[in-house]
């Protein structure tokens, strides 16, 4: 057994301090070490986007980042998207527009879409489709997801 690595990081605005095996991905760390299971595993090789989180201001597939790498960093996950004041407008739009069916890809889409709207609030449909192309959804055909993002733009 290899020695665990000591990690201090900020997740959803909270300070976390924990030990993690050096081979563990950020996805495994979030889910198995920290019990933040809102971030989902679909493929574990960076191709489905279900595990998308924001790391130091950029979206990443958390299955392709080591847990040890986030020492000193800042992570935002789906668990931090709603606040005591209520849902993020994207979450509300996903509900109103029926932008989810099974819901397993939804946390990843919400994190990706939030990142897009923070950078490019006026992104057109093509740009939205481009930005979300790293997130696979097998239920919806994407139509209602795109419309939910556009609705969020329109009501911002």
């Amino acid at each position: 057994m290899v020695d665990k690595v000591h990690v201090k990081t900020t997740i959803n605005g909270q300070e976390y301090e924990f030990l993690v095996e050096p081979y563990m991905s950020l996805l495994e760390t979030l889910r198995d070490v920290l019990n933040l299971t809102g971030t989902k595993e679909g493929c574990n090789d960076g191709n489905c986007g279900a595990c998308t989180v924001e790391m130091n201001g950029r979206i990443v597939d958390s299955c392709c980042v080591l847990g040890a790498e986030v020492n000193g960093g800042t992570i935002n996950t789906i668990e931090g998207m709603a606040t005591a004041e209520g849902l993020h407008p994207l979450q509300q739009a996903f509900l109103e527009e029926a932008a989810l069916q099974c819901g397993i890809c939804t946390p990843g889409f919400l994190i990706s879409a939030k990142s897009l709207l923070e950078r490019e609030p006026d992104a057109d449909e093509h740009r939205i489709r481009y930005w979300l192309a790293g997130n696979l959804c097998r239920c919806t055909g994407y139509d209602k997801i795109i419309k939910a993002v556009q609705k969020t733009q329109a009501t911002a």
Partner: peptide, 23 residues
Amino acid sequence: TRPIRHDGLDKVTGRAIYGADVK
């Protein structure tokens, strides 16, 4: 009509428990 689905809130907040989340 088009009401918001009952399980929607848990699914947009990451609270919904899927099979891999059972511990």
